[in-house]
Design a protein around this nucleic acid. Structure first.
Length: 874
RNA sequence: GGGCGCGUAGCUCAGUGGGAGAGCGCUCGCCUCACACGCGAGAGGCCGCUGGUUCGAACCCAGCCGCGCCCACCA
């Protein structure tokens, strides 16, 4: 059986991810290791709740990176023997999903309004049935070990019950209330949105100066505004209390042009006397600042703009039904006719826009549900301050989180959508009923609004585990351990989970928050489908078209999931990075290298137990020592959420030390008949490497694992190697270090003098240190070593190596003249080094103040260079 | 307006007090019986600028120049 499989290994000189990945994934999933029993307590178990992707979404680069990161954590914990659950599920994503279905309806020539709420919600569920598994299958392609067998959805019956419970409890606690208040109205989506869903965009506007005649008839007050259309709802004029230009007018009134309303002139500190004319028109119905000034002064709130963004019946007849742009032109024209526009100037400023629809926000007074956050924020601040919840990297995210929570404002939680968690409130005449189930009796009407999607997301780590029921899952896996996400949802999601988690479970929902890079397009822009800058992770895994942001290169090759994972982890850090296909390529090359190094080892070893104790030679002890160091280093990096250096160190040590040096050093012994000792070391080195790399590149490592002699079970469930410091061998490292330096120097010499690749250079080793490694030195440097007993006079050159040199003797390999010129150049180089070191050591300050070890190191180097020079001359 | 971050090799990025690193790209030589998705050897850097602290600065401090992000009710 094994022989048959080895044949496959023999024949395949390239690693083929597409042939391996599906098969390996099925083995994992069928084994059940992704789906743990809900046993034990959370403190001993390990869990992560995945940021739930939109149910009808598809995998993008952020998912791929974050999936890779979390999978490293999960696989590491699993190998360390923890009972491990990666909580999986999807989000109903209110606005996003509703928009998708609306578009589908439009394509059918109908609309949401036409089919009504009930039928619409049915259509959304149908949509979910059709598209809901896409992203799940894409996560499988990435190799992520999510608990797919226990999938949750934020609109599941049990989840809805949790959401309802939370709303009712917060209401009963007095933290949720309904109010007529100024909200960010999205006229495109026709719903209120929260402050966090608003983004500022820089807009070029015109600042209009408009004269408002005084009631007394003696002149006018000139106000400055970029939205003249809102004047129709003005109810006052405000000036700064200390502004002497206007102090005599405070208490008087002006007359609102076009409308005729009497506007009291009031004093308020929020007015900036430096801006415009120092007089501010007050529109409490359509501007947040004015709204607050209005409430402070008890001003009338006139509303002339409706929920569709058009002027309402409350506006003068000539303007009704106009959209904001139309009405602006019309109002300005009307004012000009009356000679009341006394100036205009271009004005560039930031204007709030809806993050979802891109439309300019229309601040409107509207009856909405609000959640007061101050009380919830207090313990959420506490747990981060005292380190119970830690951000990685700590800076700047800890401060970002704390700043926001310390200045938190009420959260507008109701949305005028049809898809989502309907607010559990019923009305009958003047009565309001808030409860988990509908009230008894006739005539109750349920509030048609739904909750902000982030309200339900905020319960994710515990509602997915069955809360409010005391389920075994909750006991086993809550609190979770790590939460990993991008910085863009620290406020929207992370902070709210902390607040709601503490409030409803009494515990922090996770102990570590990892904030990962945001990966930009290769040109530095945002990755986005509509911009043509988005790169589909699946196209990298299985091959596919390059997006328009690439102007050349044809299709992506099929790099494979391991390559993508490696690439994303290697390119990402704490700051935003541009997508770098070369890193993915590096990952593919690594998988291939791993495959081929494994072929070399597995096709030739004796079937023995992997055993670091089998180390018999200095190079054996060297590789064992190097891999033990790597183990400690990589574990530390993984645990510190430093995945990029971890991936790159694994790459470097495996490639440069294990492959380039150790495998080459071990080959002669491996090819011998009696190779059991070196087999033990090689198998140990391979096994160790596979384990360390498995969290990053699970497919290729699992596949190779299956070829190990006596392989049993899954690598994914194999024990993680703990670093063993007793196997660190400084002496072996120093000896092999010298060998490497010597071989490199000799190879460089060969290269410099143009030695023919296939012909050995004759030479005599003049150095004490190479005892056991003498043959290796000769073989790797392609030297024909002659006995040192009888020195002849025709030494062409001496190549300095640590501890001595190699006298080069004439041979067929190269031309002697050229060699002499090379030596002269090398001497110059060494002279420079000696001079530098001497200068440094001549500096009394340096010798006196630098740490002894540093000074000593410098002396050692100086001596080494002098020695090398002596060798060169002799 | 407030805050945060970035500027290091041609490109994308690590490095954060003791002689500048990786991958790709480039040059030269190799199909050496694991791998040409490979092997060997190299070239390439006023570590944005100016001052300061220090025996010593890419790294710490200050200022400046350039770029980016977040927060924010000055119309």
């Amino acid at each position: 059986m094994r022989a048959g499989r080895l044949k496959l290994l023999e024949e395949r000189t390239r690693y083929e991810p597409s042939e391996v990945e599906g098969r390996v994934f099925a083995r994992w999933e069928d084994s059940g290791i992704f789906h743990p029993d809900p046993a034990g307590r959370a403190a001993e178990n390990y869990s992560i709740a995945v940021p739930p992707p939109n149910v009808t979404g598809s995998l993008h680069m952020g998912h791929a990176l974050n999936g890779s990161i979390q999978d490293v954590c999960i696989r590491l914990a699993r190998m360390r023997g923890r009972r491990t659950k990666w909580i999986y599920g999807t989000d109903h994503a209110g606005i996003g999903t509703q928009r998708q279905v609306e578009k589908a309806l439009e394509a059918e020539g109908t609309s949401r309004e036409e089919i009504g709420p009930e039928r619409f919600v049915e259509r959304v569920w149908e949509w979910r049935r059709l598209h809901g598994s896409t992203i799940t299958n894409q996560f499988r392609r990435l190799g992520t070990s999510l608990d797919y067998a226990d999938e949750r959805f934020t609109m599941d019956h049990e989840y809805v019950r949790a959401v309802t419970r939370v709303f009712v409890r917060l209401y009963e606690k007095g933290l949720i209330h309904r109010d007529n208040y100024m909200v960010n109205w999205d006229p495109g989506l026709r719903t209120a949105i929260s402050d966090l869903e608003v983004e500022q965009r820089t807009v070029e506007d015109t600042l209009y100066l408009i004269d408002y005649p005084l009631e007394s008839g003696s002149g006018a007050v000139t106000v400055a505004t970029v939205r003249p259309e809102t004047m129709l709802a003005d109810t006052a004029i405000a000036v700064h209390p200390d502004d002497e230009r206007y102090s005599r007018l405070v208490g008087e009134a002006a007359i609102l042009p076009l409308v005729g309303r009497r506007l009291p002139i009031i004093a308020d500190e929020h007015v900036d006397p430096e801006f415009g004319t120092g007089a501010l028109k007050i529109t409490p119905g359509h501007d947040l600042a004015d709204f607050e000034i209005g409430r402070a002064h008890g001003l009338e709130e006139v509303v002339v703009i409706g929920e569709d963004g058009r002027l309402t019946e409350a506006a003068p007849e000539q303007f009704r039904g106009m959209d904001p742009d139309e009405v602006r032109r019309a109002v300005v024209a009307a004012l000009r006719e009356e000679g009341l526009v006394s100036g205009t100037q271009p004005y560039v400023h930031d204007v709030p826009h809806s993050h979802r629809s891109g439309r300019r926000i229309e601040p409107l007074i509207s009856l909405q549900w609000f959640c007061d956050m101050t009380e919830l924020a207090r313990p959420a601040i506490e747990v981060v301050r005292d380190g119970r919840v830690r951000f990685h990297p700590e800076r700047p995210w800890t401060a970002v989180y704390l700043d926001w929570l310390e200045n938190i404002r009420p959260w507008a939680i109701s949305r005028q959508l049809w898809w989502g968690h309907q607010i559990p409130v019923w009305y009958r005449d003047d009565e309001t009923y808030v409860g988990e189930i509908a009230p008894e009796g006739q005539g109750w009407e349920r509030d048609p609004d739904v909750l902000d999607t982030w309200f339900s997301s905020g319960l994710w780590p515990f509602a997915t585990l069955g809360w409010p029921e005391e389920t075994p899952e909750l006991r086993a896996f809550y609190p979770t351990d790590v939460l990993s996400t991008g910085r863009d949802i620290i406020f929207l999601w992370v902070a709210r989970m902390v607040m709601l988690g503490i409030e409803f479970t009494g515990e922090i929902p996770f102990t570590d928050v990892n904030i990962h890079s945001i990966i930009q397009a290769p040109d530095g822009r945002r990755m986005s489908k509509s911009l043509g800058t988005g790169i589909d992770p699946l196209d990298l895994i299985q091959g596919g078209p390059r997006p328009p942001v690439y102007t050349e290169g044809g299709d992506f090759p099929a790099y494979g999931a391991d390559a993508l994972r490696f690439g994303l982890l290697a390119m990402s850090s704490s700051q935003d990075v541009r997508f770098n296909e070369d890193r993915v390529k590096q990952g593919r090359d690594l998988a291939n290298k791993l495959w081929n190094a494994s072929r070399l080892i597995l096709l030739r070893v004796s079937e023995v137990e992997p055993d670091p104790g089998a180390a018999a030679t200095v190079e054996d002890r060297w590789i064992v020592s190097r891999l033990e160091r790597l183990t400690a280093r990589v574990a530390g990096l993984y645990d510190g959420f430093r995945f990029s250096p971890a991936a790159l160190e694994l790459y470097g040590t495996f490639w440069s030390e294990l492959c380039d040096w150790y495998l080459e050093l071990a080959k002669p012994r491996l090819y011998e008949e009696d190779n059991e000792q070196v087999s033990g070391v090689l198998l140990w080195a391979l096994e160790h490497t596979l384990k360390l790399l498995h969290p990053v590149m699970p497919f290729v490592t699992e596949e190779i694992w299956s070829f190990m002699p006596g392989a049993e079970g899954l690598l994914a469930a194999a024990p993680w190697p703990e670093a063993d410091e007793s196997r660190i061998d400084e002496r072996a490292e120093a000896e092999v270090g010298r060998l490497i330096e010597a071989v490199t120097a000799l190879r460089r010499y060969r290269d410099e003098v143009g030695a023919k690749a296939s012909v050995p250079v004759r030479g005599r080793l003049v150095a004490e240190e190479y005892g056991a490694l003498r043959e290796q030195l000769a073989r790797l440097a392609r030297l024909e070593l002659v006995d040192g007993a009888s020195p002849d006079g025709d030494v062409l050159a001496t190549v300095p190596i640590p501890g001595g040199g190699v006298q080069v003797l004439p041979s067929e390999a190269f031309d002697a003249e050229e060699a002499r010129a090379r030596i002269a150049a090398r001497r110059e180089e060494l002279d420079k080094e000696v001079e530098r070191a001497e200068r440094k050591l001549a500096n009394e300050q340096f010798v006196a103040k630098a740490p002894a070890a540093v000074v000593e190191e410098e002396r050692r180097k100086l001596e080494e260079y002098r020695e090398a020079l002596r060798r060169l001359d002799g």
